[in-house]
């Protein structure tokens, strides 16, 4: 790929880096990343990936912007309240970087459409806010052999990891084998979140996505990075591939995608 003068200038701080250079930036410009959710995690992740010049960014979200989102979902502005999140996201991202091809999916991602949606992407970044979607995305990525950059947040805590079972790493079900029963999921009223925690984790996910595209560094595979904002600490928890995992284990029993039900007042962050 031949860069234009505008692109050389725009991406100069990447190109300067020995580990990236023009060749690495070219990989970024050709990369295709799918982001599940234009919310707390998807917002910062999408902003940085668009700014970085990721060639194609797909974003799925069936929700509209609500005033209560704006405290952390930095893709959206006050004037976007009531607008579909994916279209608000498209406007913000194309204003930041018109080089990026944006694909908006204003629909609920289900077992019916998920394979079709993620098929054209290299990487899936999960910024969803509920367990049914997490399991669906994890299982779909496993079957399609897509690298999954996972993140989650609650209150003052967040965590991120990379699932790449097709390269020997664990999957989400190795970490959390079963979807938690409704009573164990915090309710809406318990689901506060310090805004910048979403930014911290979303940006960590964007970083891992770019590392995957570039093939550099030591990825968060088999390692869960756990952020504690109140104590200002990151600690690391090892995640082992579970040989008995129902999805990626030796005697896996899950052979098709499942739509789990979401409890009516379960957390949605």
């Amino acid at each position: 790929m031949k860069f234009t003068e505008e692109q050389i200038m725009r991406y100069s701080r990447h190109i300067i880096l020995k580990e990236i250079g023009g060749k690495g930036q070219d990989k970024i410009c050709k990369a295709k990343v799918f982001i599940m959710g234009a919310g707390g995690l998807g917002s910062p992740a999408a902003l940085y990936l668009a700014a970085a010049g990721v060639g194609t960014i797909g974003i799925a979200d069936d929700d509209v912007v609500d005033l209560s989102n704006l405290q952390r979902q930095v893709l959206h502005a006050t004037s976007d309240v009531g607008k579909a999140k994916v279209f608000s996201a498209e406007d913000t991202l194309s204003a930041i970087n018109p080089n990026v091809r944006l694909i908006a999916y204003k629909e609920r991602v289900t077992s019916e459409n998920v394979r079709e949606i993620i098929r054209d992407y290299d990487i899936v970044l999960d910024g969803s806010d509920n367990f049914p979607t997490r399991y669906l995305i994890n299982d779909a990525c496993f079957f399609a052999k897509k690298t999954l950059i996972s993140g989650s947040i609650l209150r003052f805590d967040g965590q991120a990891t990379v699932f790449k079972p097709h390269a020997g790493g664990p999957c989400y079900r190795c970490l959390y084998p079963e979807i938690p029963p409704a009573g164990f999921v915090p309710s809406c009223s318990e689901a506060g979140i310090l805004g910048p925690v979403a930014g911290t984790i979303g940006v960590l996910q964007a970083t891992e996505a770019l590392k995957e595209v570039l093939g550099i560094g030591d990825q968060l595979i088999g390692r869960l990075s756990v952020f504690d904002a109140l104590n200002s600490t990151f600690r690391e928890v090892k995640i082992r591939k579970d040989p008995d995992c129902e999805l990626c284990g030796d005697k896996a029993s899950i052979t098709h995608l499942v739509d789990y039900a979401q409890a009516p007042c379960a957390i949605r962050i």
Partner: peptide
Amino acid sequence: CPMTFVKTKLKLE
């Protein structure tokens, strides 16, 4: 600077 180095680096590539 830093476009001096950026342009040189891209040419070397």
